[in-house]
Structure formats: C-alpha cells, structure tokens
Design a protein around this nucleic acid. Sequence first.
RNA 1: UCCGGCGUAGCUCAACCGGUAGAGCGGGUGGCUGUUAACCACUAGGUUGGGGGUUCGAGUCCCUCCGCCGGAGCCA
Length: 439
Amino acid sequence: MFQNCREGGALFHISDAKNFVGEEVEIRGWLYNKRSKGKILFYIIRDGTGYIQAVAVKGEAPDKAFEMYDQLGLESSIIVKGIVREEPRAPGGYELTLTDIKPVHKSVDYPITKKEHGTAFLMEHRHLWLRSKKQRAILRIRSFVEKKIVDFFYENGFVRIDTPILTATAAEGTTNLFATEYFNLGKAYLAQTGQLYLEAAIFAHGLVYNFGPTFRAEKSKTRRHLMEFWMIEAEEAFYDNDDNIALQEKFISYLIQNVLENCGDDLKILERDTSLLEKVVPPFPKITYDEAIEILSRKNFKIRWGEDFGGDDETAISESFEKPVFVMNYPRDIKAFYMKEHSERPELVKCADLIAPEGYGEIIGGSQREEDYDKLLKNMKDFGLSEDDYGWYLDLRKYGSVPHSGFGMGLERFVAWVCGIPHVREAIPFPRMLYRIYP
RNA sequence: UCCGGCGUAGCUCAACCGGUAGAGCGGGUGGCUGUUAACCACUAGGUUGGGGGUUCGAGUCCCUCCGCCGGAGCCA
C-alpha cells in the first residue's frame, strides 16, 4: 500500500481505524459512495483495506467539502483528512469527522452504478468490476488460497517444479491446444498440463508440484470452463493410488480449514454458508465408478457403464454426500493413456476424481501412473500417440522406474466452490472464455 | 459445432390477443442536520440489435444475419 511513500503524519489504513480513535488521519483512496442531506453530507471512502464514512457538517467542516460534493463522481480518487471517531451507527463501527478533502482525479459517469447489473455488462467492464466488494472478496480469497497451496507443499516436503508453458506436442492427445509459431522448429503449443514433466522431476526430487496457467482450446461453454485457468499439479514417487488419495484429502482439508480460519470477513461479504465447508475434514467418502453408476441408475439417470459423467451426473453424485467424494477406478477407455491398469480388472484404471459438494463438479483428477515400459508403450499405440514424440517420457520407465501417482486441481473451480459463486469466471481476475478475451 | 433462451433509455427490466413505448436506478435542476442501494419534487434521455417480409397497423408474427447467456461434447 501507500504508507511506504508517505511523508510524515500517521500511517493509516481504514482497516486499522480502531487504533486511531481521536487522531487526525489521512486516507488516500477512492470515493465509494456519497450522500447529501442538505447541511450534512457523507462521503464513503475505500482505500483497498476497507470502507469508512467521512461526515461533514455545514459550518463545522471546511466549505470545500460542500463545494466538492457535486464535482466528485463515484470512484473519484481523493485524499481525505479527518478525525477518527467511534460511531455505533456506522457499519464498521468507526467514522471520520472530515477536516479536509482533496481530489486526485475526478471520475465522471462511472459505469457501474449502485443498482444491479447483468453479467454481460459486468464482464465487459471487468477492469472496473474488480473494485466492487464481492469481486474484491473473491480475489482476496483466491490470493490466500494460492499462498496456502504453496505452504502446504512446502510443509510436506515437495519441491516446486515450474513446468514449461510452450511445449512441442500434445500431452494427452485428444484435446485441442492453442498453437503458435516457434521459429524454425514449427509449431509450439500452450501447455494443457505439466504432468509429464513432473513425472520426470520425481526421479530427482521424489515429491514435486507445479502451479501455473494452463490452456485448453476446447470450445467449452459452461460455468465450469475457462480457456486459460490455473492448475496445481502434484506428482509423488512411490505413492500408489491410495497414498495419492490420502494426500489429496489432507490437501483439500488444509486449504478449506485455513480459509475458514483466515477469510471470515470475505466469506461474510460473499454470504457464504460455511457450515458445509466446516465438514470438509478427512476422511472423505470413496466410491468406485461402478458404485457411482449404480447411484445414478437409482436416480433414473440415463447413463450406461462405460460412459463418462456429465455435469448433471456429477451434481447428482455429490448430492449423496456432505463432503467431497472420490470416484475411483474408471474404465480405461474414457481416461488418459498414462493411467495404471487395475490389477484385478484390466478394463479399469487406478484413478480417482474428486467431486466437490453442492454441484461444483470435479475439482481434482488424479491417478496412479503406468510405470511399466511395455504396457505404457502399448497404451500409447492404442491411443494413437507417436513413440517419437514421447521418447523422453518412455525413458523414465527405462532408468529406475518406480510406482508413482499424481493429481491436478483446478484453482478456479476450487475458489468458486469455497466462495459459493456459481461460475468460475468470477474466480479469476480476467477470465479468458470462448467468446470473450476482452478486457 | 449442436440444442435451448435472450436482445426495448447509460444500467436493470415492463409493455395482456398485433393497436399512441413505460418504470426504477443513473444523469441534470431544486429541497432536506444522521444518511446506510438515503429520501422528496421536477427534468432530459428511444432508428425496440441489423436487414427483409406479412399486415390498415409490428417491440410483439415469419425469414435471415449479428451479439450475448445457459447447456452438451471435452475436461480441471
């Protein structure tokens, strides 16, 4: 914030008002709202840490405060001085008796008004929408979650491996990738996963993770999809599928409990019902794909064994549980080539997707990886992948191969769930969507 | 790409069976000494997304294009 560049005077944040009662302070911020009642007027100011109301009474406050009133549109940047006062009628409990107000820049006709707006309009003004209370709360929670993700892995002995964003080939084959020119080497693609690179790194570090943007050029048009999203992926040497699931349980619970402990004010702004989040502690329910199909059949869903779940299916499964639920051991045909075959039923793979409660859908996809050279090579051929493109990946099964597992979590889906917001587009500052890349 | 829905004032939305386009907010003007999305009065603001058609008459019905929203597929 600004306090580092202030000359003299009290260092002041609105959020610290309680420590400055009776003192004159200076706020550098923006005009959030204003009201006039003739000989008394109110300026509501925000400074990035909170909101406070400055009161000016005719004859007591400088005349300037009244002259300024009509000139200052909402979101004008201003420097306000005033004396902090306890005030039970004020929302935060504190108020300012205004002693000076100076415009830094006068804002005229701010597009986002105090009444409701539609999402199309708000997305068109995303650069301004970020200033509003709920959007601030969401992105503050996102920022905190990002910190706790890094903390969790650091505390648990993981090494962060930043995997490349520009890659030469598709990692999972089927999905569409964004392409760009790469000098004399032809096309390069924006990474849709860093997993294969993480698998290489476990042989150096044992436990590794990455955290960064991921790109999918799929024409997905739903509340759970973005073209550019942030993913956290972990990869663990000598972990089987059960170890992997236990780690995910611990990870998700850690994040949720930390948010509940530290983000109470923001969750309140979002009117999030936290009672369901409080239940997110290990162990989570675990069902197999077969059992999930049974649950859906009982609910009269038209899904047959062998098909993947759609959004409605995931919601229906999650409604049977209060906590996030792991769905394990999917048919191999609907999963990626690198997943390890189930030892008793070769038509299945050892994997688990974590489905969040309240209809937020899949937030984690994970699996044990195929560590056997010959089986992996056969899978790649079955999936139509070129052996040449993946030579380095096959090498990992030649020089000290070990059982290993990993998972990937979509940050925006997680944040949307925690915040209780219906669409992932609000869980990222500037969403890239199928028909929107502005602003 | 496919399936639905929507497009009316700056914004959010009304307008019955096809019959003179309206409200709230925002803007402007005036009023008000405790407002909390302040309130009260007055006021300006429209090629009803574009084009074509049916009709005495279209915001409303038909065709077409454009834009947006939701869903499917795919996935986190």
